Computed example of a mutant assay.
Amino acid sequence: MKTPGLTKLRGSVTVTVRGEQLEQFINALAKEQIEVWNLTPISVDHMRMEIVVADYFRLRPLLKRTGSRAHVDGRAGLPFFWNQMYRRKWFLIGFLLFCAGMFCLTSLVWDVEVKGNVKLNKEDILQTAREEGIYPFQWTFRMPDQDKLSKDMTRRLPGTSWVGVSRSGTKVTIEVVEAAQPKNTELLSPRHLISKADAVVTHIFAERGQPEVGIHDRVRKGSVLITGQQGDLSVVAQGEVRGIVWHEYDIESPLVRKEFVYTGEKKEKGYLYFGNTAIQVWGYGKVSYDKMQTLTRLDPLTWRSWKLPIGWMSENILEATEIETQQTMEQAAARGMEGAKLDIKVKNGADAVVLKQKILHEKSDNGKVYMKVLFEVEQNIAEELPIVHHQGE
Score class of each variant (00 low, 15 high):
Asp55Thr: 13
Leu149Cys: 06
Thr140Gln: 14
Met102Phe: 13
Arg60Ala: 09
Phe98Met: 14
Lys89Cys: 10
Arg65Met: 09
Glu113Ala: 10
Val165Gln: 05
Arg130Lys: 12
Arg48Lys: 14
Gln138Ile: 04
Gly116Ser: 02
Gly94Cys: 09
Val72Gly: 00
Phe81Lys: 02
Trp90Cys: 01
Val163Cys: 03
Met49Glu: 03
Trp110Gln: 03
Thr106Gln: 01
Asp45Pro: 00
Arg155Asn: 08
Val72Phe: 01
Arg69Tyr: 06
Thr40Phe: 12
Pro61Asp: 01
Arg142Lys: 09
Cys99Asp: 01
Lys31Met: 04
Glu113Gln: 14
Arg48Gln: 15
Glu50Gly: 02
Leu108Thr: 08
Ser150Arg: 02
Arg130Trp: 13
Phe137Leu: 14
Ala30Ser: 10
Val112Lys: 03
Leu63Ile: 04
Phe95Gln: 00
Glu32Gly: 06
Asp145His: 14
Ile51Lys: 11
Met49Val: 05
Leu59His: 05
Ser168Thr: 14
Val109Asp: 02
Leu120His: 08
Val165Tyr: 09
Val163Phe: 02
Pro79Lys: 00
Trp110Thr: 05
Ala28Ile: 05
Leu126Asn: 03
Gly74Gln: 01
Ala129Asn: 09
Pro79Met: 07
Phe98Arg: 00
Leu120Lys: 15
Arg60Gln: 01
Ser68Asp: 04
Ser68Trp: 08
Asp73Glu: 06
Met47Leu: 15
Val52Gln: 07
Gly67Gln: 03
